[in-house]
C-alpha cells in the first residue's frame, strides 16, 4: 500500500466502523423496529403502538419506573456526604492518605460481591440487627431484605454506600487541582474551615458537582441491575418491591420471551437517557472551555 493512497485512512477506521455498526448501529435500528412488532422468537408482525400501550398500562411497569425515580432521592445525600468527606481529606489531617485509600474501597469491590455481603449483613437475624439490638436500638431492627416496605431503602443504602466513594475521589481530585494561593490567603486572613469551604472551595467545584449529579442520575436510571439482581433474588423481590426498569426489560426478554415489550421499554429508557446525556455533554464542554 502506497503511503499516500486516499483509501488508507478508510482501512484504518474500517474495523471501528464495523464493530460499532454491529454492536450499536444495527441494534438501535432493530430495537426501534421490534418495539412496533409482536416478536415471537426472532421476528413477528407489525402491531403499531400495542407494545407501548401494553407496557404503559401495566402496574408492574409503573411500579418499576417509580422505584427508579425513588432512587434519585439518594443523589443529594451522596453529594453532601461526598463533598464533606472530600473537603475533610483536603485538609490533609494526619493519616489522610490512609482514609483516602479506605474511603475509595467501596468503589473497588464489584457490585455483585458487595451486594452478596450486604445481603448477609442485613438479614433479619444477621449481624446488623444483632448490633442494633445490643445497642438497645430495637426500633431500628427491621427485616431489611425480606420486607417489601424496607427492601428498596436497603438497596438505596447500598447504592449510597458505594457511589459516595466515587464522589469523594472525583471531588478530591478537583480540589487538588485548585489554585492554592487564594486558599492560603484566606487561611492567613484567619478564615475558618467552614468559611473557606463554603465561600472559596465549594463555589469553584460547581462544575464537578453538576457533572457528578448527572452521571449519578444516569446510574440510577440505567445501571442498578447488579444491585437489584442480587438483593432481590433475581426477581426484584420480595414481591415486586425492588423491581426496576432494567430488571423489567431483562424479565420481558429472558423470562417471559416478549422481546417486543422489552424493546418498547428500552426505547423509552433510551429517550430519557438521551436527555440526561445531552446535559452531560453540555457540562463536559463547559468544563473543558
Amino acid at each position: 500500500m502506497r503511503r499516500n493512497s486516499p483509501l488508507l485512512p478508510y482501512l484504518f477506521v474500517l474495523p471501528l466502523a464495523g464493530l460499532l455498526t454491529f454492536v450499536f448501529g444495527l441494534s438501535l435500528v432493530r430495537l426501534v423496529e421490534f418495539s412496533f412488532k409482536q416478536v415471537r422468537g426472532i421476528d413477528g408482525p407489525w402491531i403499531g403502538l400495542r407494545n407501548y400501550e401494553l407496557v404503559l398500562g401495566q402496574p408492574l411497569f409503573r411500579e418499576a419506573v417509580w422505584h427508579n425515580i425513588q432512587l434519585f432521592l439518594v443523589i443529594p445525600v451522596i453529594v453532601v456526604i461526598a463533598l464533606v468527606l472530600a473537603l475533610l481529606l483536603y485538609e490533609r489531617l494526619p493519616g489522610w492518605r490512609i482514609h483516602r485509600t479506605i474511603l475509595f474501597l467501596p468503589y473497588v469491590l464489584a457490585i455483585p460481591i458487595i451486594a452478596v455481603v450486604m445481603k448477609q449483613l442485613f438479614q433479619f437475624s444477621g449481624p446488623v440487627n444483632t448490633v442494633l439490638s445490643a445497642l438497645s436500638l430495637d426500633f431500628l431492627v427491621l427485616d431489611w431484605i425480606g420486607s417489601a416496605d424496607v427492601a428498596l431503602w436497603t438497596v438505596m443504602g447500598l447504592i449510597l454506600w458505594r457511589e459516595t466513594a466515587l464522589g469523594v475521589i472525583l471531588f478530591l481530585s478537583r480540589l487538588m487541582a485548585l489554585d492554592e494561593t487564594l486558599i492560603e490567603a484566606a487561611r492567613l486572613d484567619g478564615a475558618g474551615w467552614r468559611h473557606r469551604a463554603w465561600y472559596i472551595l465549594i463555589p469553584q467545584m460547581r462544575g464537578v458537582i453538576e457533572f457528578f449529579v448527572v452521571i449519578s442520575a444516569i446510574t440510577m436510571l440505567s445501571a442498578v441491575f447488579a444491585y437489584v439482581y442480587v438483593i432481590g433474588g433475581g426477581r426484584g423481590g420480595p414481591g415486586t418491591a425492588t423491581m426496576v426498569i432494567e430488571l423489567y426489560i431483562f424479565n420481558a426478554l429472558v423470562r417471559t420471551s416478549l422481546p417486543g415489550v422489552a424493546a418498547a421499554v428500552s426505547v423509552m429508557l433510551f429517550l430519557v437517557a438521551l436527555i440526561l446525556i445531552r446535559a452531560l455533554f453540555v457540562l463536559r464542554r463547559r468544563e473543558e472551555d
Binding site: F34, S222, A223, L253, A262, S266, L269, F270, A273, I277
Partner: peptide, 9 residues
C-alpha cells in the same frame, strides 16, 4: 453514552 441495557434486546 448509550446505556448497555438498551442493546440487550
Amino acid at each position: 453514552a448509550v446505556p448497555p441495557v438498551v442493546l440487550i434486546v
